[in-house]
């Protein structure tokens, strides 16, 4: 039972993650993290600690 629940939760998370990837691709035209960070203007203010 518990494992089944955990699997369902895992699938939901995966689905949401992939949906986000699709949206990121739509917004940025790429899914390479480096290019995405570059696209947001050198990413200076966005990186925690920077």
């Amino acid at each position: 039972m518990l494992i089944l629940t955990a699997i369902v939760v895992g699938i939901a998370t995966l689905a949401l993650g992939l949906a986000l990837v699709v949206r990121i691709r739509e917004a940025y035209g790429t899914i390479e993290e480096d290019e995405i960070l570059d696209a947001d203007g050198a990413a200076t203010a966005d990186r925690p600690g920077a």
């Binding site: 949401l16 993650g17 986000l20 949206r23 990121i24």
Partner: peptide, 21 residues
């Protein structure tokens, strides 16, 4: 995660994805 991704800025998507991971 969904709520965060609703942000106007496209960086919201990235932030949401980071949070998701």
């Amino acid at each position: 995660y969904v709520l965060i991704a609703l942000g106007r800025d496209r960086r919201a998507l990235l932030a949401s994805y980071q949070y998701l991971v």
